[in-house]
Simulated scan of single mutants.
Amino acid sequence: MHPARPRPVIGIIGNSNLLNGDYPAHTGGTMNSAAVAEVAGCLPLLIPADPRYVRIEELMAVCDGFLLTGGRPNVHPSEYGEEETPAHGAFDRSRDAVTLPLVRACVARGQPIFGICRGFQEVNVAMGGTLYPEIRDLPGRMNHRMPPDGSLDEKFALRHPVRLTEGGLFHHLLGATEVRVNSLHGQGIKTPGARIVIEGWAPDGTPEAIHVKDAPGFTASVQWHPEWHADSDPVSRPLFEAFGAAARAFAASR
């Protein structure tokens, strides 16, 4: 008997946290691992996003694709040529130092990446784009932030529709030109980076779905959180299935 082909490895970009207020840790949401393992059909591997411990080429050699997860810290505005203000919130400069060059390297090589929330913003910044520090402060924009109270079901509940470009990548993946998504972010795209194609918009015009034009690999990224109920949500499941298929194809091509 031939051994079963090992699952493709998805590096899940983690976040720096303090457990119990004083114990430094690298963490990743269980729902991200579940979506990678159970829907994408891949092996989840949590990455400590700190350049003191990992190098880009090492990560790309070990992993077949990367999930750029959400996280409370925001991309530092110096990465897109702007000054830091209180509205920009907290930062994780170690994660910036890993993810931004990693995105560019994966885009060039065709290695699959899937950006979620902060990850979506990282893809845009990595390609030269900029961000608004606080969407809800802009005229005519809705509050996209996570509700401060309630259960996880209430916080991750579907909040608004997203209009998708007819005939585009996301229309093809999701089989619809309008879908309903959750909303748990404060920042958002101000100007798209080079080759960033926006294919999804909230009703207030906030960009919600992007990919990198002419990239040789999977680069779909979304501003919402499809890892929530990824196994059953009709929008989330096709995204993770497509990501998993891309990782399998990349692994087989090595």
Rank of each mutant, 00 (worst) to 15 (best):
P3S: 13
P6Q: 10
R7C: 14
P8W: 07
P8Q: 10
V9Y: 06
G11W: 10
N17F: 11
L18E: 14
N20Y: 09
T27Q: 02
T27F: 00
G28A: 15
G28T: 05
G28D: 10
M31Y: 13
N32F: 15
S33C: 14
A34R: 12
V36H: 06
R52D: 10
Y53T: 12
R55H: 12
V62G: 00
D64A: 10
G65N: 05
G65F: 04
F66R: 00
L67E: 02
L68S: 03
L68A: 01
T69Y: 09
G70P: 13
N74P: 07
H76K: 11
P77A: 06
S78R: 11
E79T: 12
G81Y: 09
T85D: 11
A87Q: 13
A87D: 15
G89N: 08
D96H: 08
D96R: 12
P101K: 14
R104D: 14
R104P: 09
A105Y: 10
V107M: 09
F114H: 10
G115A: 09
G115M: 05
C117I: 09
F120Q: 04
E122I: 10
M127W: 06
R136G: 00
M146S: 11
P147K: 02
P148S: 11
G150W: 09
F156R: 02
L158H: 11
E166I: 03
G168V: 04
L169W: 14
F170D: 00
L173S: 05
L174H: 02
A176G: 09
V179C: 04
R180N: 14
V181P: 07
N182V: 01
L184V: 09
G186C: 04
Q187I: 10
V197S: 07
I198A: 00
I198Q: 02
A202M: 01
P207M: 02
K213C: 11
D214Q: 12
T219Y: 14
Q223Y: 02
W224S: 07
E227V: 04
E227Q: 11
W228T: 11
H229V: 01
P234L: 03
R237I: 02
A242E: 05
F243C: 04
F243Q: 03
A245C: 06
A246V: 06
A251P: 04
